[in-house]
Write a protein that binds this DNA or RNA. Structure first.
Length: 286
DNA sequence: AAGCTTCGCAACCGCTCTACA
DNA sequence: CTGTAGAGCGGTTGCGAAGCT
């Protein structure tokens, strides 16, 4: 019996010695080169800091260690008070409303923890930050991944709108209508539309011709439909593969070349009244 | 029961901002 | 304008507890 008791005492003593040694190591480790204590705060230290702040108030943290009689740096004192000792801190777990608010604020503000905490009464930036990293970050990341997957699925099933824009036409210098006397009055206007979509009268577009000093690369596309046709119907009649191609005129050559060759003079040409304003079309298509 | 891993949280570190001489 | 010190913020680390094998 006596032997057993002795062994128990020995084990107990060993345990105590180990504990004391560990504490001493911890205390040594927790000191910086300047001798200021680091690491976990003890109950006594908390008590000293609390009474100091009760006496002198918050702020002037550089004086806090001296006033409280603590061997801590001012930063450590400030942090301990703001994140733990301050009686206004709400140490209960986050409610659903608070979590919801946090998620919304984080979406809005990013990692601005102090601003987020400012909107959550009783919560500290450190607490908010820790909660985010341990509970919400994974959720948000997985949610984003799911959203990206859904987006990719949608991309596969839904084709984007194909926007077909008419392109300016280029006539060669040999074009019959460019070689006539109105060579200096090639217009970028290919059509004129009115607000109700019907074709404008001659007088409406009389002043829209722009002198370009013989620049033959300007765009123009004559309109050959009758005046009661809606301006856009002619565009729709052109097959998709031909829209925007400069070769359109060549492919439909007989129709258009004949038409152009019939125009004797820009001032009295008939088609001028039936052309559409190019920019107006672009505006509407955009 | 022991060892290992994960989790939560307090605390530290480094940086920036601001006030002041 | 510049340098310095104090204050504050966000990222990161380290430790203890809890959970798992």
């Amino acid at each position: 019996m006596i032997a057993i008791e002795k062994s128990h005492i020995f084990i107990f003593m060993c345990g105590q010695l180990r504990k004391t040694y560990r504490d001493q190591v911890h205390m040594e480790k927790s000191k910086t080169r300047s001798g200021v204590r680091k690491g976990a705060w003890t109950y006594e230290e908390d008590k000293l800091l609390k009474s100091c702040i009760r006496k002198y108030g918050e702020g002037k943290w550089h004086l806090a260690p001296q006033r409280a009689g603590l061997n801590r740096c001012r930063k450590s004192c400030r942090l301990r008070w703001l994140n733990y000792l301050n009686p206004t801190i709400n140490k209960e777990s986050f409610s659903e409303d608070e979590v919801d608010m946090m998620l919304r604020l984080h979406k809005l503000l990013g990692n601005r923890w102090s601003l987020i905490a400012g909107r959550l009464p009783g919560r500290t930036s450190n607490y908010v930050k820790n909660y985010w990293h341990t509970h919400l970050r994974k959720k948000v990341i997985s949610k984003k991944l799911e959203e990206n997957k859904e987006k990719e699925k949608l991309k596969e099933t839904v084709k984007p709108h194909e926007i077909i824009k008419p392109k300016p036409r280029t006539f060669s210098a040999n074009s019959p209508w460019l070689n006539r006397k109105y060579i200096n009055f090639v217009t970028p206007i290919v059509a004129v539309s009115t607000k109700d979509g019907t074709v404008a009268k001659d007088s409406d577009i009389e002043n829209t011709m722009i002198p370009i000093n013989g620049d033959v690369d300007s765009a123009a596309q004559p309109y050959t439909g009758n005046s009661t046709t809606m301006w856009w119907e002619n565009l729709l009649n052109v097959s998709n593969d031909k829209i925007g191609l400069c070769s359109l005129l060549q492919e439909e050559d007989s129709k258009y070349v004949n038409f152009l060759s019939e125009v004797p003079n820009v001032n009295d040409c008939n088609w001028k009244s039936k052309i559409y304003e190019f920019e107006s079309i672009l505006d509407i298509l955009n």
